[in-house]
C-alpha cells in the first residue's frame, strides 16, 4: 500500500487553490457593494456625520426630495419655500448657504420674491396711515362761555385780518 500522506497534502493544496477564486469573487463583490453604497448614498451619509442637530437633518431631507422631483417645484414649493427660507435663516446660516448653493436655481426661478413684496407693500400703506395718527394731538381745554366767546371773537378778527392781507 502506498503512502497516502503526500496525496493528502496535494489535495489540501488543490482545495486551497480551488477556493481561491471564490474568496476573490466574494471580496470583489463585497468591495463593489461597499463602493456603490458609498457613492449612491453619499449625501445621506455625509451630512449626518457633520451636523448633529436633528432639525437641520429634516431641512436637508426636504431639500433633497425637492431637488430630485423637478415636477413638484412650481406648484408645491411655494408655501413651504417661504417657510423654509424663513426657517433656514433663523436656524443656521451654514446650512442655508449649503442648501442655497444646491437649490439656487429653483429658488431664483420661482416668483417667491414677488410674493414677499406684495405682502410687504400693504404693510407700508398701513404704516403711512398709522403715522398721522400718532402726530394728531387734540388739546381739549375746558373754558367758560365768556372766555370762549372772547376767544372766538379774537380768532375771527385774526382770520379776518389774514384774509384782508391776502386779498
Amino acid at each position: 500500500m502506498y503512502d497516502i500522506k503526500p496525496l493528502e497534502e496535494e489535495w489540501k493544496k488543490y482545495k486551497k487553490k480551488k477556493r481561491k477564486p471564490w474568496y476573490t469573487f466574494i471580496f470583489v463583490v463585497f468591495l463593489m457593494l461597499l463602493i456603490s453604497l458609498t457613492f449612491l448614498n453619499y449625501k445621506e451619509i455625509d451630512f449626518p456625520k457633520f451636523n448633529d442637530k436633528s432639525k437641520v437633518e429634516i431641512v436637508t431631507n426636504k431639500s433633497t426630495t425637492l431637488l430630485i422631483d423637478k415636477a413638484l417645484t412650481t406648484l408645491e414649493i411655494k408655501k413651504p419655500k417661504v417657510s423654509e427660507v424663513s426657517q433656514i435663516t433663523e436656524i443656521k446660516p451654514m446650512t442655508v448657504t449649503s442648501y442655497e448653493n444646491e437649490s439656487m436655481e429653483i429658488v431664483e426661478d420661482l416668483p417667491i420674491p414677488e410674493d414677499v413684496k406684495t405682502i410687504k407693500e400693504p404693510r407700508v400703506k398701513i404704516r403711512t396711515a398709522e403715522k398721522p395718527r400718532k402726530k394728531m394731538h387734540l388739546n381739549i381745554i375746558e373754558t367758560t362761555s365768556v372766555s370762549a366767546y372772547k376767544d372766538v371773537a379774537k380768532r375771527f378778527h385774526q382770520t379776518h385780518d389774514l384774509i384782508w392781507i391776502l386779498s
Partner: peptide, 30 residues
Amino acid sequence: EICEYYDKNEPSKVNYERIPQRIIEMAALK
C-alpha cells in the same frame, strides 16, 4: 484503492453511505 487504505488504517475518513468528494479528487490528482 484509496478507500481501501482508509478503511484499513483510518476508518473515520471513509463514509460508507457516500464516496467522499475528497477521495474522488484525490484519485483525480493521482
